[in-house]
Amino acid sequence: MSEQIAATQVEHIARLARLALTHEELTRYGEELGHILAYIEQLNEVNTEGVEPLAHPLAVHNVWRVDEPQPSLDAQQALQNSPATDGRYFLVPKVLEHYDAS
């Protein structure tokens, strides 16, 4: 009933999702996603012409609050769970020279 998703496409999705998957995982998820998507395709039986999409069950839209400063986490609290900081900033490997938009 289901077609497997092409390996190149699974790799593309994994890259978008920022998941370094093993070959075994790529193969397995390719098969499983094909399976699940084949099941999801049954939505195409439903005539949705003229139906507005429903992203959210409540009829609330923009909810504003007064634009006044309020207390928030201090730097020490914000950094307390980070695996690498210098006490003031989050530390990451150099970004710019390796920048790749994909």
Binding site: A20, S82, P83, A84, V92, P93
Partner: peptide, 17 residues
């Protein structure tokens, strides 16, 4: 792996991290 939670021990660029 930056703001909180597990960070890989392997070295690499930010995307690999």
């Amino acid at each position: 792996g930056v703001h909180y939670g597990h960070r890989t021990a392997e070295r690499g660029d930010i995307i690999q991290l």
